[in-house]
């Protein structure tokens, strides 16, 4: 029996596909279960420097100061001066030495990182218990402590990514050829 041309070509194409495959396996079990982004929302908490991921809500430094003194000062000290945990405000010029203490004001390049880390990881004893409004308020307070914004500025999904951090241009990519 001769195969019809179409059948022959189909088998040939399958063979070429096999050869072109770089893995020694032509297939994986394909056991990943499809999931909707909305079902991932509770885990999808990262905030990007351009503000992607910032939730609704808002806050100011006045509200943040109250929360800070209740939940943060025990480790980070009054006014962010540091304690058992690192200082968050002030700090020496980075030219003082390679071991200069890093604070939000003297080092952090993006304000979005403050929101991201505070929401995902703080307070250490009860992470992810702060409301989004509380995180915005704490972010505003920490920026005020570092003289980056003024007292009355409201932090929300629009204003936070616009905050220009003092050390934004203080970095050199170590291996540019390995970094997209």
């Amino acid at each position: 029996m001769f195969m019809r041309n179409a059948e022959y070509l189909a088998i040939l194409a399958a063979g070429l596909f096999f050869l072109a495959s770089t893995n020694s396996y032509t297939q994986t079990p394909n056991l990943g279960m499809p999931i909707d982004e909305q079902d991932i929302a509770a885990w999808d908490i990262d905030i990007l420097p351009d503000g992607t991921g910032l939730p609704l809500g808002q806050g100011t430094a006045g509200e943040g100061k109250i929360i800070y003194e209740q939940k943060c000062a025990v480790c980070h000290g009054v006014n962010g001066e540091g304690g058992i945990s690192p200082a968050l405000a002030g700090g020496d010029p980075l030219s003082n030495g390679i071991d200069t203490g890093k604070t939000i004001g003297n080092f952090w390049p993006y304000a979005t990182t403050i929101f991201d880390y505070t929401r995902r990881a703080m307070p250490w004893f009860a992470p992810r218990t702060l409301t989004d409004n509380e995180v915005y308020s704490l972010t505003a307070y920490l920026l005020v402590l570092n003289d980056i914004i003024s007292d009355e500025v409201v932090m929300n999904a629009n204003t936070l990514p616009e905050v220009r951090m003092p050390n934004r241009d203080g970095f050199i990519v170590r291996f540019p050829e390995r970094t997209p």
Binding site: P49, P93, L94, P109, Y110, T113, G170, F171, I172
Partner: peptide, 20 residues
């Protein structure tokens, strides 16, 4: 994402004040 670990912790300060 500029997580705290790439933005702050694992960015070593260089003489003069820039950081890798």
């Amino acid at each position: 994402a500029m997580s705290i670990y790439e933005a702050r912790t694992y960015a070593p300060i260089l003489p003069g004040g820039k950081a890798y």
